[in-house]
């Protein structure tokens, strides 16, 4: 039932995050990592051993963690504030709003194990609302990389960007999708596969499932375009409008509730600029049952074959 979606080698994007952060920190002494007792789950063990003084562990205290990050930025430090995404974004949302976004603090928020990465631990540990919460805030780019290459590129970009951002990472393994020399551009979708009948849009752990779905559709004679949309805000309106005009149908998929996430963001663009048939796949506004992340994605209709079926249905509505 739950055979691996990809036969390619899978990688935990947290490793790319940690390795990139350590590399950057070697050349930039202002870089600090802030965490909430999450040294292990944020993969900060290497950072801690290399830069023990620059690992600021506030203990299990997410509100303080985000405020401390803002204060560190005020004092000229480049703070990567790392914690499990449900607690970083859920517990400390008001701090993210007032101390980071509204105050324009140069803080990089890193939500680890987002989506349903904590699977069996249950809905308290799922972070399927964080796109909605963070993309509602001005001045806070929201980014969910699709593989280790994009993760490393996004971390490098974040370090060079003068302002706050939210990086949404997972611990669920994903195959390489982008070329090794990929350079992250804020607000730019990546065309991973061109097509003319329908466009499949996703990010994070769903992008590779979209690629598989496109293969299935190709077998049925359907030409599917695949866009990797890591940046949920600011969103790439141009790529979405072009997809609407050129393929006439869109399917989105996300490891997030369908209320307010990637699909909603794409729908906002479509409704205002190029109304076409569209289907949003994701968690349908419920608390998930027990199961691993991969099981739950399958359960909620995001198995590649199910995505392909959704695409066929939406194409018929043209």
């Amino acid at each position: 039932m739950n055979a691996p979606v990809s036969t390619a080698k899978l990688h935990d994007c947290r490793d790319a995050f940690a390795a990139t952060l350590e590399k950057l920190a070697e050349n930039d002494e202002t870089i600090v990592a802030v965490c909430n007792d999450s040294v292990g789950s944020s993969k900060l063990g290497g950072f801690k051993s290399k830069f023990p003084d620059r690992l600021v562990n506030v203990g299990i205290a997410e509100q303080n963690m985000v405020g401390v990050g803002a204060g560190l930025a005020n004092g000229g430090r480049l703070a990567f504030v790392c914690g499990a995404s449900p607690f970083l974004t859920g517990r400390a949302l008001e701090q993210i709003k007032a101390d980071i976004s509204y105050s324009n603090a140069n803080v990089k928020l890193v939500g680890i194990s987002s989506g349903m990465a904590y699977g069996e631990l249950g809905p308290t540990h799922h972070s399927i609302e964080d796109f909605a919460w963070t993309r509602a805030l001005p001045n806070l780019p929201v980014i969910a990389p699709c593989d280790r290459i994009e993760t490393a590129a996004a971390v490098e970009w974040a370090a060079s960007y003068d302002g706050p951002c939210f990086l949404r990472l997972s611990r669920v393994g994903v195959p390489d999708l982008l070329p090794a020399n990929h350079k992250f551009e804020l607000g730019k979708a990546n065309l991973l596969r061109d097509g003319s009948d329908v466009t499949l849009i996703a990010n994070g752990t769903l992008t590779h499932r979209m690629m598989k779905a496109a293969e299935i559709l190709a077998g049925q004679g359907i030409s599917a375009r695949v866009l990797n949309l890591a940046t949920v805000r600011p969103i790439d309106e141009e790529a979405i409008i072009a997809a609407a005009h050129e393929t006439g149908a869109i399917v989105t998929a996300e490891e997030h509730t369908i209320f307010g996430g990637l699909g909603s963001a794409v729908a906002e663009v479509i409704v205002e600029h190029a109304p076409i048939p569209m289907k949003r796949l994701g968690v349908p506004g419920v608390f998930a049952p027990t199961g691993s992340a991969e099981f739950l994605l399958d359960e909620f209709g995001m198995r590649p074959a199910s995505i392909a079926e959704a695409a066929v249905t939406v194409i018929k509505r043209k």
Partner: peptide, 11 residues
């Protein structure tokens, strides 16, 4: 106060 703690820690 949390932000101030960050400022002092930065110093």
């Amino acid at each position: 106060l949390p932000v101030a703690v960050g400022m002092a820690k930065a110093a």
